[in-house]
Nucleic acid binder design. Structure first.
Length: 373
DNA sequence: GCACCGTTAGTGGCTAGTAG
DNA sequence: CTACTAGCCACTAACGGTGC
């Protein structure tokens, strides 16, 4: 045993990493435990009210009484407004089987790590369910009616640490219907499980509605805009994409080639070359990207890295043509589309006031002010 | 060191729509 | 009609980052 004074820097660094990880892990566990207590309490309250209502024929009239009585007797306790108690009741009715002896977690499921399957699950592990924050549960109850889809969002929320706002955006843009949907040749060219992971890392379509680009635009304009909004671009790409560069120069035999966008994927441990295209997908894009992947493999890829992956982003594609085009390619390549705007649903459109309506409204306000109260 | 800002989860009020 | 549900959205306290 050495004395305490001659701890080498390496020893100390290892000690620091170890202790730090334990601190962070304990903090995460504590947060999750506190959250689970809250959500379980709300579920229990919902259950009690539900069962009393059924057994004793109470109406919803108990809820206002309960709410005001609780505020009198426990004024420091928040969260038992009428609205929230009604939500607890609705929460229990949505998931009555979540109590003791309820849904058994599938053996493979883990909270972090590998991304889950794209197919919406019929069940959700209980530790995931109870770890989802209350406010997220509320959004999902309000906006995702299909239960397996809702379970998918629960898993994703925890796996990616989505905030409430991010979750709302993912739901609005129907992330569940896009994840893993790119056309690729990964299953033929990449070993499992890398092929599954890579497939899951790509979407179709990508939605770039944070851009304000007018048609017609140039590919370089699109690229510049994406880089300018890099934060949102990365969020849309999804977990794990790290930006390496744009117009990344590759020197091949004295001739320069430029990659539109180069990323490194932290989970896949592979470079991802993105080629932006206007308009429809064309078969020759695949060949060019195949070449870029070869070059990146030669010049940039570390021996420990997985094979470089190419992604073609175009505005539309014929799926059959896309499949054929990548079937003869020897590098892993995916093809997805992007949308610059997602059309407003019609009910939203009609909810937006017209100029005339706004003017009429303003005129009325002015009229009322002149009349006095 | 501190004021300011934006974001967060949790909350709760309002109300359109619906059931009874 | 009333009672209730469900969706929308704004408020709030807490927190973390930033610039002076």
């Amino acid at each position: 045993m050495r004395g305490g004074s001659d701890v080498t820097p390496d020893d100390f660094a290892a000690l620091l990493v170890d202790v730090k990880e334990r601190i962070l892990a304990a903090r995460t566990r504590a947060v999750l435990a506190v959250n689970a207590e809250l959500v379980q309490l709300y579920w229990e309250v919902g259950r009690i009210i539900h069962e009393r209502q059924r057994a004793e024929g109470w109406g919803a009239a108990v809820i206002p009484r309960l709410s005001s009585a609780l505020r009198n007797e426990l004024p420091e306790v928040k969260g038992f407004s009428e609205r929230n108690i009604k939500r607890m009741l609705a929460f229990f009715r949505e998931y009555p089987e979540m109590g003791a002896g309820g849904i058994v977690p599938p053996p493979v499921a883990q909270m972090t790590g590998r991304s889950s399957a794209p197919e919406a699950a019929a069940h959700v592990p209980r530790e995931v369910f109870w770890a989802v924050p209350w406010a997220h549960h509320i959004i999902m109850m309000e906006k995702v009616k299909h239960l397996p889809t809702r379970f998918w969002y629960m898993e994703q929320t925890l796996a990616h640490g989505w905030s409430r706002n991010v979750l709302a955006v993912q739901i609005e843009t129907e992330a569940h219907a896009r994840q893993g949907k790119a056309i690729t040749n990964f299953s033929a060219l990449l070993p499992s499980p890398q092929s599954d992971l890579a497939q899951q890392a790509l979407k179709d379509p990508y939605i770039f509605d944070f851009l304000t680009l007018d048609e017609p635009f140039h590919e370089r304009e699109l690229e510049t805009s994406l880089v300018r909004h890099l934060e949102k671009f990365l969020l849309e790409l999804g977990q794990g994409f790290a930006f390496v560069g744009r117009q990344y120069r590759l020197d091949v035999g004295g001739e320069d080639f430029y990659i539109d966008l180069l990323f490194y994927h932290l989970r896949l441990r592979a470079f991802i070359v993105i080629d932006l295209k206007r308009g429809r997908f064309r078969p020759e894009y695949a060949g060019k990207l195949n070449f870029y992947c070869n070059v990146v493999n030669d010049l940039l890829r570390h021996p420990d890295d997985q094979p470089t992956i190419g992604l073609i982003l175009c505005q539309s594609k014929d799926n059959l043509l896309a499949e054929y085009s990548i079937s003869g390619i020897d590098k892993p390549i995916g093809i997805s589309t992007y949308e610059l705007t997602r059309a407003l649903p019609t009910h939203l459109k009609s909810a937006l006031p017209t100029v005339e309506e706004i003017e009429r409204e303003l005129a009325e306000v002015q009229y009322r002010e002149e009349e006095g109260e």
